[in-house]
Amino acid sequence: MMVRGLAALAALASCTLAAAPATARFWQCAPYAREISGVNIHGNAHTWWGQAAGKYARGSAPKKGAVMSFAASGRMRLGHVAMVSRVVSEREVLLTHANWSRRGGIERDVRAVDVSDAGDWSRVKVWYAGNGGLGTSTYPVNGFIYADGAPERDVAPLPNVTMAAVSPAPIVAAQRAASFTLELE
């Protein structure tokens, strides 16, 4: 009986190990942004903006490859950082980041919209998996930290799109699928 019990326990343990590969990682936003953007800053996200001064160019215009630096706020005491994966328009970008909708998870190409009154990217709304669209909260942004060689704009020009002619269903479905992609490296 004891041998059979040990065999069952060993089988259960092997199933558990197979479900959680050794390469799985729990990502925080700062190490993930550093890894994918080339901006070599360490520490909590709310310190990145100050640390970038004199080391990296900073500004208020989104550029592909730049890091969007979210300021610390009541809801985000440690701030947040995310890489701009695509500039869609003057007031919309796609972000790739970690630890936003799901603790430790990675989201690729999710929508962020400038909702600041001046159109200066000082306040944004970001796509949130919990509601499958832009979140209801707005977040303060310090600006963008540009990695060496960050392009001024996407290489290929973006097509003009009339929003009335585009059905939001495929976009929402694609964003939902992107939000549930786990990074296993």
Rank of each mutant, 00 (worst) to 15 (best):
A8R: 12
L9R: 14
S14A: 12
T16V: 15
A18C: 09
A19N: 10
A22Y: 10
T23I: 03
T23L: 05
R25T: 04
F26A: 04
Q28H: 06
Q28N: 13
C29H: 05
A30W: 00
A30L: 13
A30E: 08
A30I: 08
Y32C: 01
A33I: 02
S37C: 08
G38Q: 04
G43M: 13
W48Y: 03
Q51L: 12
A52R: 03
A53S: 00
A53W: 04
G54C: 00
G54I: 05
G54Q: 06
Y56K: 02
Y56M: 02
R58W: 13
S60I: 10
A61P: 06
P62K: 05
K63V: 07
A66W: 03
V67R: 00
M68P: 02
S69P: 11
S69L: 04
F70P: 08
F70S: 02
A71F: 01
G74C: 09
L78C: 11
L78R: 11
G79W: 03
H80A: 09
H80C: 10
V81K: 11
V81L: 12
M83D: 01
S85C: 08
R86T: 07
E90I: 09
R91P: 07
V93N: 02
V93K: 08
L95I: 15
T96C: 07
H97L: 04
R103E: 13
G105Q: 03
G105S: 11
R108T: 11
R108Q: 05
R108G: 03
D117L: 10
A118V: 06
R123C: 11
G130S: 06
G133E: 00
G135R: 10
T136N: 14
F144A: 01
A147H: 03
D148W: 00
D148K: 00
A150G: 07
P151K: 10
V155A: 14
V155H: 11
P157N: 03
N160I: 15
V161N: 14
V161W: 13
T162I: 15
T162K: 15
M163D: 15
M163L: 14
A164Q: 14
A165V: 14
A165G: 15
V166P: 08
A169W: 02
V172N: 02
A173D: 12
A173H: 05
A174Y: 08
Q175M: 10
Q175P: 05
A177H: 12
A178H: 11
S179G: 07
L182S: 10
L184K: 00
